[in-house]
């Protein structure tokens, strides 16, 4: 079995008494796109800086291709890092920025020029080589930063909030472009973001961080289907979480009795009910709720309900069947959308 391209082995970084990274262990295989997801302050950026060699470790090891990187300075690690705010060199034009890495690696001038042109084509800025970076828009800067990071052909490309400063529609388009691009190039990518949509769209594997530790790791589908903990579930935007006592095929909760999937172990659990699992009907059947608000989300509508007992519930409806605000409805629950979480 070959070494993974990147291995973090119990990496610890402290800022004063606080551990920004607390014994984090993580592998990334070649050609894999790993997205680290977490709220701000969870240690994501520190993780990238530790791998890049810009942050001293207080413990643990970073290995690239099986080689311990302790004592290897940033410029000899052969990894690329795209900074959150791009950090383009203001005194150089676009071409000068992109060619910087190859130049540092002593690539001959004509090969360098060719590579610069190729990369600018690749990121959709053909012929922009002579433009001063000050004339670039935010999205263009982001593209140049990406081309610059790719130019020296790093064995690992790291992206810090790659799309953080862009507006929503641009972000959604770019994330698809990026995934296609990395697939074509076969780049190994370690990206961090606080935006779960971005992470799920980009990643082969998602790693959720919390307070310097890894809380959950898996493919986007796995993490989405089984968040594992209430923290991850809430971070993914699920708020229908309640304590429950499972007894056979049902569970006792603050909302009353809920069906649970077959094979759920008995006893005390935390349960997540996906909004799609909350079915609305006439007030007579199920849990009696008042509709507090409605949020339009493209094809469906998020409905916030205030049940007669228990905390607020979120439900999801198709547009035509959405009740009016203030309406009274009866809520039922579908077992396939009830997920068991680990107790905290």
């Amino acid at each position: 079995m070959t070494d993974p391209l990147l291995r973090l082995d119990a990496v610890t970084v402290r800022f004063g008494a606080r551990a920004a990274l607390d014994a984090v262990s993580l592998d990334a295989a070649a050609h894999e796109i790993v997205c680290v997801l977490g709220p701000s302050g969870s240690g994501k950026s520190t993780l990238l800086r530790a791998v890049a060699g810009l942050q001293q470790l207080d413990g643990g090891r970073v290995l690239l291709d099986g080689a311990d990187q302790d004592g290897v300075p940033a410029h000899r690690r052969g990894v690329g890092l795209m900074f959150q705010d791009h950090q383009l060199f203001p005194q150089r034009d676009v071409g000068g920025n992109v060619a910087f890495g190859p130049r540092m690696h002593k690539m001959p001038r004509d090969a360098r020029d060719r590579r610069t042109a190729e990369l600018l084509d690749l990121v959709g800025l053909p012929g922009a080589s002579a433009r001063p970076v000050a004339t670039l828009s935010g999205g263009e800067q982001q593209r140049v930063a990406l081309a610059r990071a790719l130019a020296p052909e790093p064995r690992l490309l790291m992206l810090d909030e790659p799309l953080g400063q862009l507006d929503r529609s641009l972000r959604e388009r770019l994330v698809v472009e990026l995934r296609r691009l990395f697939g074509t190039l076969g780049t190994t990518v370690l990206a961090v973001t606080h935006d779960q949509g971005e992470a799920f769209a980009l990643a082969d594997r998602v790693v959720v961080m919390r307070d310097g530790r890894i809380e959950r790791s898996g493919t986007p589908l796995e993490v989405w289907q089984k968040p594992g903990s209430a923290f991850v579930a809430r971070f993914l935007g699920f708020d229908n979480i309640t304590a429950a006592t499972v007894n056979g095929a049902v569970a006792d909760t603050a909302w009353g009795t809920l069906p649970v999937p077959a094979g759920t172990p008995e006893g005390e659990h935390q349960l997540l009910v996906r909004p799609s699992g909350v079915r609305l009907g006439p007030p007579g059947g199920g849990l009696r709720c008042e509709v507090v608000s409605r949020t339009f989300r493209g094809g469906h509508v998020g409905v916030l309900l205030r049940p007669e007992r228990g905390p607020d519930l979120e439900a999801e409806c198709v547009l035509r069947e959405t009740p009016e605000e203030g309406a009274v409805v009866g809520a039922g629950f579908a077992a396939e959308d009830v997920v068991v979480l680990d107790r905290e």
Binding site: V123, G124, L125, G127, A128, R131, P132, A134, T135, L136, S137, G138, G139, E140, Q141, R143, L166, D167, S169, L170, R173, L174, E177
Partner: peptide, 21 residues
């Protein structure tokens, strides 16, 4: 920079959608 806040050779997929620098 002041005369040309957004240069004409705007990236293909990005035309018009990007916030100006």
């Amino acid at each position: 920079k002041e005369v040309l806040p957004v240069a004409p050779s705007e990236g293909s997929a990005l035309a018009g959608a990007v916030p100006s620098a």
